Amino acid sequence: MPSETPQAEVGPTGCPHRSGPHSAKGSLEKGSPEDKEAKEPLWIRPDAPSRCTWQLGRPASESPHHHTAPAKSPKILPDILKKIGDTPMVRINKIGKKFGLKCELLAKCEFFNAGGSVKDRISLRMIEDAERDGTLKPGDTIIEPTSGNTGIGLALAAAVRGYRCIIVMPEKMSSEKVDVLRALGAEIVRTPTNARFDSPESHVGVAWRLKNEIPNSHILDQYRNASNPLAHYDTTADEILQQCDGKLDMLVASVGTGGTITGIARKLKEKCPGCRIIGVDPEGSILAEPEELNQTEQTTYEVEGIGYDFIPTVLDRTVVDKWFKSNDEEAFTFARMLIAQEGLLCGGSAGSTVAVAVKAAQELQEGQRCVVILPDSVRNYMTKFLSDRWMLQKGFLKEEDLTEKKPWWWHLRVQELGLSAPLTVLPTITCGHTIEILREKGFDQAPVVDEAGVILGMVTLGNMLSSLLAGKVQPSDQVGKVIYKQFKQIRLTDTLGRLSHILEMDHFALVV
């Protein structure tokens, strides 16, 4: 994948999101292997301009796509893939009243899908469409860049269908997702969380590099694949309309690839034109409109599966009536509230959605109805927002919020430890010299600072030695090549209790 991002070429006709291997024109390309080798690009942008032909009021008969309808489940399912879809609609009884809503608040519980998330729908649909058009064949390999849930859905379907599955996901995604993927037989590649989507090191860039190296491999490409919004247009939206008897006044959905909100909203605009569509985008993402909503100094966020630093091709923002931004604290607070007060075992993005819903639905009156999409299960986040310690460490809970008995030293300040200034190293000294210094002084790690004293990161003896043994660096290389740029900081005025929580999850903390 090139470091400079080429513009994806656009073909003359058809839909841009065809499933299957992508040609340089962004659509299915038939021909000899030699032709494909000559024409197939190194990668295709996940934010390529959409060429979708959908228009409100256009006859369904003019759609270029294969459409399906929700099917009634048999008493005995032939395999677990038949437990994807037909998820329950559940009334939220307490939270709406707590925040003064007059309307009825309903939750579409997508964590009841077989793999635990709304992404099971698009995973199965992308595979079925690729099999139907002859792209996927027995023994082929599926590769997908994902925040985890699409990966789980694909790995689940691949396990049943017999495909090899490789999932490329950023490091910030939970260990629970990784464990589930491994249990399903998927191979996992992790990428830096802070890598831009168009960087060769991003999950998108690495996935395309693997595709170019592995024979008979395919990126189904949830960011561009029409099967993504079509899955929701054909099934999720129809289920909502049936469950609500066609009567709903507002739908609120958090947005990642945009397939969920695009597919549902398009069908609702056709069948229930008075329904307002509300999009939820986390602070630090750029999906919301108008652009002024996205202006923030924050560039990272903890909530998973929603928000991006690019506009995915499948996201149709014209069908969203209003956007709201959400933050991590309210997302996790509301997710825990949904679990504790409503018994809905949902993930953090569901918290984002409901946090926005109780604001947006203030305009609705008694007798009206708001539906929220709860995308995934708490299963993926047992060591994250479900953990009091994690919430404390991230600053989303305060010590006084917890009532468990603490040891005698818990409320003492870090400054009472009488710490001395640490050994520091410059980023320009060599790895070999740094190892000598650390061994001589008896230290395992040291902060790396520039000549102005600005902290650049941390270097550890173990990481340097393993990097040297693996051949990633040489003793003569500058130590700046092996620094940890993500590390926890703590102030002298913070409590030892807070430091204790940090050290339970990290090997060190830097006192500043």
Rank of each mutant, 00 (worst) to 15 (best):
T5Q: 08
P6I: 02
Q7E: 13
Q7I: 13
A8N: 12
E9Q: 04
P12Y: 09
P12N: 10
P12V: 11
T13P: 09
P16F: 03
H17R: 06
S19V: 03
P21H: 09
P21T: 13
S23P: 10
G26N: 10
S27M: 14
L28D: 09
L28H: 10
K30C: 05
G31Y: 06
P33F: 03
P33Q: 14
E34A: 09
K36R: 15
K36M: 12
K39T: 10
E40L: 15
E40S: 10
I44V: 15
R45G: 14
R45M: 12
D47V: 08
D47Y: 06
A48T: 14
P49Q: 10
T53S: 09
G57D: 12
G57Y: 07
S61M: 04
E62Q: 14
E62C: 14
H66P: 07
H67G: 05
H67A: 07
P70D: 10
P70Y: 03
A71D: 11
S73F: 14
S73A: 15
P74L: 15
I76F: 03
I76Y: 08
P78S: 15
L81N: 05
K83C: 10
D86C: 05
D86E: 13
T87Y: 01
P88D: 04
P88C: 08
P88K: 04
P88I: 04
V90E: 05
V90W: 03
V90Q: 05
V90C: 01
I92A: 03
I92L: 04
N93Y: 05
K98S: 15
F99G: 15
L105T: 05
L105Y: 03
L106Q: 08
A107Q: 06
K108S: 03
K108N: 02
E110H: 01
G115A: 12
G116K: 07
S117L: 03
S117K: 05
D120K: 05
S123W: 05
L124E: 11
R125F: 13
M126P: 01
I127W: 05
R132I: 03
D133V: 11
D133G: 05
G134L: 06
L136H: 01
K137D: 08
K137W: 05
P138E: 08
I143R: 01
P145D: 04
S147E: 03
G151C: 02
G151I: 00
I152D: 00
L156V: 06
A157Y: 09
V160F: 03
G162T: 05
Y163D: 00
Y163T: 00
I166P: 02
V168I: 07
M169W: 05
P170A: 02
S174L: 01
D179C: 14
L181P: 01
L181G: 03
A186F: 01
E187T: 11
V189D: 06
R190Q: 06
R190H: 06
R190C: 01
N194Q: 10
N194M: 08
A195P: 03
R196Q: 13
F197S: 07
D198L: 08
S202N: 08
H203K: 03
V204Q: 08
V206L: 14
A207W: 00
W208P: 12
E213Q: 15
E213W: 03
P215K: 08
I219T: 07
L220A: 03
L220T: 02
D221I: 01
D221T: 05
D221V: 01
Y223P: 00
R224D: 04
R224G: 11
R224A: 12
R224L: 04
R224E: 11
S227H: 09
N228T: 03
Y233E: 00
A237I: 01
Q242P: 05
D245N: 12
D245G: 13
D245Q: 12
G246L: 04
K247L: 10
L248G: 01
V252G: 07
A253P: 02
A253K: 05
G256V: 00
T257R: 01
G259D: 00
T260D: 02
I261S: 01
T262C: 09
G263F: 01
R266W: 07
K267G: 12
E270N: 04
K271H: 13
G274N: 10
C275K: 00
C275L: 06
R276Y: 10
